[in-house]
């Protein structure tokens, strides 16, 4: 039972590695579908803007409120801009945005490719002499890798703005002080680290979602199972790998 489970997971891992290999091959060889890439960036990236902005602002608001009152007891309100901006940029924005994208985009990709698979549209792509990895996987993975870091940066920025408004309204913090503190705390390496992490998460979300889409069987039931599997798996991968990537970035830059 245990061995069977391990075997099954190793098989999935092997197939994912093979799909990744094919993805890189197709990405660097012709034809490259620029049109499909831009289409996906708009669909996946621009389509996620509103929810990213909302999450960013709300996180900034809540963080500032909690830290503001918490630290006020020790006379530490002045540290709020630094704490909020740094935690947003380094951890909260990357994790929240990636989990959100795993739910929104990961499930969407697996459902779309899964539905195409069960209705033989993937076979049709192959039967028409074209490569489904080139047509479907490359634009989706690449657009997620490009869009997720940008969405994360936007989310962190909106969080800082949210924090700014609460710091000013609730704690009467001077705007100039808040901005100065944020600018002196958040370094380029923090932004780079967040973008690096989320590019890694984006690749994992999209490649796993595409993989599961291609594996989908048993009609609509299979599509439902695939989307659930993708959200759960990618969420776990994001959370676990975040620890190791954070450790790596601290070793490199701190």
């Amino acid at each position: 039972m245990m061995i069977g489970h391990i075997e099954k997971n190793l098989k999935i891992l092997g197939e994912l590695v093979m799909l990744s290999k094919d993805f890189f091959y197709c990405m660097f060889t012709r034809p490259f579908y620029w049109g499909r890439l831009f289409e996906q960036i708009i669909q996946l990236g621009v389509g996620s803007l509103s929810i990213t902005i909302v999450i960013g602002i709300v996180t900034g608001l809540v963080m500032t409120l909690q830290f503001g009152y918490g630290l006020a007891k020790f006379g530490g309100t002045l540290y709020v801009p630094a704490i909020v901006s740094l935690s947003l940029m380094r951890e909260l924005a990357p994790i929240f945005t990636s989990l959100l994208i795993a739910g929104r985009i990961g499930s969407g990709i697996s459902a779309e490719i899964g539905a195409m698979n069960v209705t033989q549209q993937i076979d049709a792509i192959r039967a028409l002499g074209t490569n489904p990895i080139r047509v479907l996987v490359v634009p989706r993975v690449l657009s997620t890798v490009l869009a997720l870091p940008l969405l994360t940066t936007l989310s962190a920025f909106m969080g800082i703005i949210g924090g700014f408004s609460i710091a000013y309204a609730e704690f009467a913090m001077p705007p100039g002080f808040y901005i100065n503190k944020v600018l002196s705390t958040v370094q380029f390496t923090d932004v780079f680290g967040a973008m690096f992490k989320t590019a890694f998460f984006g690749f994992n979300i999209a490649i796993i979602a595409c993989y599961r889409g291609f594996q989908t069987k048993e009609g609509t039931k299979g599509v439902g199972e695939a989307t659930t599997w993708v959200v759960v798996t990618t969420s776990i991968i994001i959370l676990v790998s975040d620890f190791f990537l954070s450790k790596l970035l601290i070793l490199l830059f701190d």
Binding site: Q120, Q121, D123, A124, R126, L128
Partner: peptide, 20 residues
């Protein structure tokens, strides 16, 4: 096989049109 598949074409039972 891709070039071969342009010479041997397949018509699917359910048509398999790209629905998007």
């Amino acid at each position: 096989l891709y070039p071969i598949r342009t010479k041997i074409s397949y018509s699917f039972q359910n048509a398999a049109l790209f629905d998007s």
